[in-house]
Write a protein that binds this DNA or RNA. Structure first.
Length: 490
RNA sequence: GGUCCUGUGGCCGAGCGGUUAGGCAGAGCUCUGCAAAAGCUCGUACAGCGGUUCAAAUCCGCUCGGGACCUCCA
């Protein structure tokens, strides 16, 4: 079943056959979070999308080195090449050391990813852990003549670079067009060109996070970390670089420029961009104020949410939309996914108790084929899901005795369902505790209501029996003047 | 202003030249003590107007919506 995998490449704006640099191996780099606040759901969507991609590559048998960085320094507020570092700013607000901020939100981010059942990357390098590499790279860019220093700050010379390379290739734009969209340089600007961006930024006296460099104390610009770390772990040219679409125009464009200036070759063969998550048609973002945290989503504790949704039903919700499409968020859509997810998981459970027959009424091999075709076509998870529902239909029909299946086909069906539902889509049976607790609560309410009615009718035989039988099951009932309490003995 | 993306049945969302996407909701039927679950059947959707074609949701043009990026964000 080794068909060809096709990937939509932002560089060419088309689906291309995927051919790794080294047979059987894939180098994958994804721009990770900036850990200066809680991740919101929009961030999660990107990482869950790439988790699907990572999982499918693994499923196909590739040895994948998946690098996802953690930006813990150098990400400025505003593109003024000045101002406070995000971490330092937040640190002042929270009265914490910058690295306390980093630690706090890094841990939070990993917890959330675990809840969504996202596999950890092979390497999660941090910007602060690779200051030397970044400095070395900046030095090299200066040596090659594509950067210049002004008062301890180093800028990338975009116009010079553009003379030999193509700066706007990722967004298919010409330099002149890009220039039109930028403001004029004022007399106070240190930059030579309007599009020039900082590689290294001079520290101010109050800057908390700073390192020594050939240009004095300072800190790295945002874009250089990804170039430095991706080339360190994946080589000067690697297979796939991914990230959210919002990074395409600036961050990734600058990454290409940095690496190309340094090595004189394209750093990445396939650029992949995931689309945004919207709420009521508007992009979820920090500035729009319509972003909610994963925790709020799980508990339902947010004005936009009617109720809580489990991590797996949210993950399933995301899997029903292609990664390159925007995904609009609504309670109705989420509830639909919740039910669909339950139906799929029920079918997988039913699979274990199916009876076999001498013939099959469904073509399981064809189903398998369709599943692979869907995923090989640029990771089309929605179509995969549709095929899995066809599998669910078959399972239920066999279970009802309306269809039959052979031993071999049943085995194949089990393989398909398990491989794709668990390994590829990354779904898992929900931790049953929450559901059980809720169910138990309901059961107890029913029992206590019956007991209350019995007591009202002075049917104490029944009421006492209920209390005694529950006690035998380690559930204690206490009548108080405010009503009935119950608890479970530990 | 510039560069793009997009408009699919009640909702979400695939498809992107000829074939039932799928899920949720709704209606009917089967099953069933009742209910649920499950299965079957059903709405015959592609913003509007033109054009290309034997054939268009799918290609082209125009009109009208929605959104993204160009400024920190996955």
């Amino acid at each position: 079943m080794q068909q060809e995998l096709f990937i939509y490449n932002t560089l060419s704006r088309s689906k291309e056959k995927f051919e790794p640099i080294t047979k059987g191996m894939v180098g994958l780099y994804v721009c990770g979070p900036t850990v200066y606040s809680d991740v919101h759901l929009g961030n999660c969507r990107t990482f869950i999308s790439f988790d699907l991609i990572y999982r499918y590559l693994l499923h196909l048998g590739f040895k994948v080195r998946y690098v996802r960085n953690v930006t813990d320094a150098g990400h400025l507020e505003g593109d003024r090449d000045e101002g406070d570092d995000k971490f330092a700013k937040k640190a002042k607000l929270e009265q914490l050391e910058p690295m306390e901020i980093v630690q706090k939100y890094t841990v939070g981010f990993r917890d959330v990813m675990r809840e969504f059942n996202a596999l950890p990357p092979s390497i999660e390098p941090t910007a602060t852990g690779h200051i030397c590499e970044q400095i070395e790279m900046i030095k090299e860019i200066i040596e090659k003549g594509y950067a210049y220093e002004v008062n301890g700050t180093v800028y990338f010379d975009v116009e010079k670079y553009n003379k030999e390379f193509s700066y706007g290739q990722l967004t298919n734009r010409k330099l002149e067009e890009l220039l039109e969209g930028t403001r004029e340089l004022s007399g106070q600007d240190e930059k030579r060109g309007r599009l020039d961006f900082a590689l290294w930024i001079q520290a101010k006296p109050e800057t908390l996070m700073k390192w020594p460099s050939p240009w004095g104390w300072g800190f790295p610009g945002w874009h250089i970390e990804c170039s430095a770390m991706s080339s360190k772990y994946l080589g000067e040219t690697f297979d796939i670089h991914g990230g959210g679409m919002d990074l395409q125009a600036t961050h990734h464009t600058n990454e290409i420029a940095q690496s190309q200036a340094c090595n004189h070759k394209a750093p990445v063969n396939y650029w992949m961009h995931t689309n945004m998550l919207t709420v009521n048609g508007v992009r979820m973002s920090k500035s729009a104020g319509n972003g909610f945290l994963p925790g709020e989503l799980f508990t339902g504790d947010h004005p936009l949410l009617e109720k809580g949704y489990s991590p797996m039903s949210v993950r399933f919700f995301m899997m029903q939309t292609h990664y390159r499409s925007t995904l609009d968020f609504s309670n109705e859509a989420l509830q639909a996914s919740e039910k669909g997810y339950a139906r799929l998981m029920n079918a997988v459970k039913t699979l274990e108790s199916l009876k076999t027959a001498s013939t099959s009424t469904s073509n399981i091999t064809e189903l398998k084929q369709k599943c692979y075709e869907a995923m090989n076509d640029d990771f089309n998870a929605p179509i995969l899901v549709a095929n899995l529902f066809e599998g669910a239909r078959i399972i239920n029909s066999v279970n009802d005795g309306k269809e039959t299946i052979t031993v071999d086909d049943l085995q194949l069906l089990k393989t398909i369902m398990h491989d794709f539902v668990f390994d590829v889509l990354g779904l898992k049976a929900e931790n049953a505790n929450a559901a059980h607790d809720k169910a138990l609560q309901g059961v107890m309410e029913v029992i206590l209501e019956i007991r209350k009615e019995a007591k009202a009718k002075k049917d104490f035989a029944t009421s006492d029996k209920l209390r005694d039988e529950l006690a035998k099951n380690k559930i204690t009932i206490k009548d108080t003047k405010d009503g009935v309490n119950w608890s479970i003995e530990e």
